[in-house]
């Protein structure tokens, strides 16, 4: 099995890569900007059973480079069975409200950069006619909340894009999976109080991602109960929702 992981140094992506190394002895093409962490992950995956690991160091602010390394990935392995896009930033909502450049930065990294990658990837998968494209979105994209609507919007852009791409790809036998984690204990959320019972570990999310891929799902909430939580949140009438400080 050949896997392309974009944003491979993210905690959720790392946990997923480890699972695929242990379970499938997969081949990996890992893309991220942090060379030290990326090569540490490459060694780690080999110990865990990966057959081959290739790494690519690049910053996703450099969108001109995307076609190049996507090409490299497909040259390395001919077919890519699974692509996982996992990079992202949580950003600072308040800063985004005050500074339009901060807002644009977040929209770029979380929103436009995956869209650009997906556009390239879709054309390749179209030719390939098989495999999975999976993107780590977020429950935050389901409804804008005052505490993080810029982040939410940046994820919603991709979620909506994928809804359409899914239909286009379904005819060709390509799975398009939108992953919506709730609260996950990762470096991204290091500064947030984790006292509530809703926090999951990246390893739990990885298990859910692999299951959703195997089952050919379109969309998955992780852990599952977020489907119900978001179901409720999305159905709160505006006049009530507007009074909640969520």
């Amino acid at each position: 099995m050949n896997i392309l992981i974009i944003g491979a140094s993210s905690a959720i992506a790392t946990a997923t890569a480890r699972l695929y190394a242990q379970k499938y002895k997969a081949n990996f093409f890992l893309v991220a900007r942090d060379e030290a962490r990326l090569s540490a992950l490459a060694d780690d995956l080999k110990v865990r059973g990966a057959t081959a690991v290739t790494i690519k160091v690049t910053d996703f602010t450099d969108d001109a480079a995307y076609p190049q390394w996507i090409e490299e990935a497909f040259t390395a392995y001919k077919t890519i069975d699974v692509t996982l896009i996992a990079h992202g930033i949580l950003g600072d909502q308040e800063a985004c409200e005050k500074d339009v450049n901060k807002m644009k930065e977040m929209m770029f990294i979380n929103g436009f950069s995956p869209l650009a990658m997906l556009t390239e990837l879709a054309n390749r998968y179209e030719k390939q006619g098989s495999g999975t494209i999976a993107f780590v979105s977020s429950v935050a994209g389901d409804r804008g909340r005052s505490s993080n609507y810029v982040y939410g919007a940046s994820k919603a852009v991709v979620t909506t894009f994928l809804q359409g791409l899914r239909v286009r790809m379904a005819k060709l036998g390509v799975q398009v999976l939108t992953i919506k984690p709730g609260f996950v204990d990762t470096p991204m959320t290091a500064d947030i109080d984790k006292s509530g019972p809703l926090w999951a570990k990246p390893e739990d999310i990885a298990v859910g991602i692999e299951k959703a891929i195997v089952k050919g799902k379109h969309e998955v909430y992780l852990p599952f109960f977020w489907r119900y939580i978001m179901g409720i949140i999305m159905h709160i009438p505006h006049f009530v929702f507007n009074k909640l400080s969520l």
Binding site: A40, L41, D43, D44, V47, R48
Partner: peptide, 8 residues
């Protein structure tokens, strides 16, 4: 965060 294997 230092949770990688190095070699075995």
């Amino acid at each position: 965060q230092l949770n990688s294997f190095i070699s075995f």
